[in-house]
């Protein structure tokens, strides 16, 4: 059986998925990044290898997420894609007529508008993390409620209180005030869900045309309270797909499958054994000019695989690891060829 691997390494979670030739999800995995992307990828690869049927062979690999470049080097990716494209591809696969994707992850949130199966507009949160999973996590632990029960509890509220959603710091002090004046916990939580949704719609989704069908994905989609708040605000049903937490990884896997067709099955994938290889990431400050760039260096078994982080390209170009054909066919065939290989 042929399989295609997708890895999405974000700030909070690392997700791995494998799809087959028919784009069915064979296995998927959601673990915490814990600030150590390399270890997380290796652990993810080790675990998922154990869950795959024995006759599977991987014919392509794709990476996405904020650590996509790093991950691409580690697993040997054929395609390295931004998470907006990856999420859109995955949502389209689950719901071909989707027109709006709401995605809220650990540290960022985005909205993607699609028309006739094509991304027409998108936005990501820029300066504020108030409307993201990390903030919910923090508030749940402050109220001593397991994050898994957060949403359920909010649904029990009859009269949600109004919480300032503009800024995480203000939201927190507002919540404390409401709690000290005697409001019930579920009402505060429901108010928080509504504040988060309001913040998302007023900032990230500002000026965007939100049309149904609407898909809600990312880690926060697990929270039924947020989903309910979205439905209330948008007056449309909001669908949470079965693999909502790993949609980025599924998107990367689907992109890897497309890429494999272009490459006639020749893959750069290093195999699941990467979990046993010694990778080291280190950084140094370049002294070449006053920019003092922090250059990251990735070594595999002691050998330099890639460098990045320098503004001028002095270090990155000194390795020239798989820059591949960045340009070339973008004009005639369009598609993703116009996008630089991030490595």
């Amino acid at each position: 059986m042929n399989g295609y691997l997708g890895v999405d390494v974000g700030s909070v979670s690392t997700n791995v998925a494998v799809v087959d030739d028919e784009s069915r999800v064979i296995a998927s995995l959601y673990i915490r990044t814990n600030g150590r992307p390399i270890q997380a990828v290796q652990e993810g690869m080790r675990t998922i290898a154990g869950e795959l049927p024995p006759d599977i062979s991987i014919h392509g690999a794709g990476t996405t997420g904020s650590a996509r470049q790093l991950t691409g080097v580690i697993v040997g990716a054929d395609v390295v894609k931004n998470e907006i494209t990856a999420h859109a591809v995955a949502a389209l696969h689950i719901m071909p007529d989707v027109q709006t994707v709401l995605e809220i992850g650990g540290q960022d949130s985005k909205i993607i508008c699609l028309r006739d199966g094509v991304v027409t507009d998108f936005a990501m949160n820029t300066v504020c993390a108030a409307g993201t999973g990390s903030f919910l996590d923090h508030q749940a632990s402050r109220l001593n409620i397991p994050i898994e029960q957060f949403g359920e509890l909010s649904l029990q509220s009859k009269t949600p209180v109004r919480i300032a959603g503009r800024c995480g710091v203000f939201a927190e002090s507002d919540m404390i005030h409401k709690q000290q004046t005697g409001h019930k916990t579920e009402d505060i939580i429901a108010g928080l869900c509504e504040a988060l949704v309001r913040n998302y719609l007023n900032n990230v989704a500002k000026g965007k045309e939100i049309l149904p069908p609407i898909v809600f994905q990312g880690g926060v989609a697990a929270n039924v309270g947020i989903r309910a708040a979205f439905e209330k605000a948008l007056k449309h049903p909001v669908t949470v797909p079965p693999y909502y937490g790993v949609m980025g990884a599924i998107g990367a896997a689907l992109l890897a499958r497309e890429e494999a067709a272009r490459r006639n099955g020749v893959t750069s994938f290093r195999g699941f054994a990467v979990s046993n290889i010694k990778y080291e990431a280190s950084s140094f400050e370049c002294k070449g000019c006053p920019n003092c760039c922090e250059v990251v260096e990735i070594r595999m078994e002691g050998e330099v695989m890639a460098r990045w982080g320098d503004r001028c390209g002095k270090w990155a170009n000194s390795v020239q690891a798989r820059r591949g054909a960045r340009k070339g066919s973008a004009g005639s065939s369009g598609g993703d060829a116009a996008v630089a290989d991030a490595s």
Binding site: K81, N82, V118, V119, F122, A330, G335, D336, V339, A340
Partner: peptide, 9 residues
């Protein structure tokens, strides 16, 4: 990257 993807499509 995402914007360029969108334009290319």
């Amino acid at each position: 990257e995402a914007f360029v993807d969108l334009l290319a499509r």
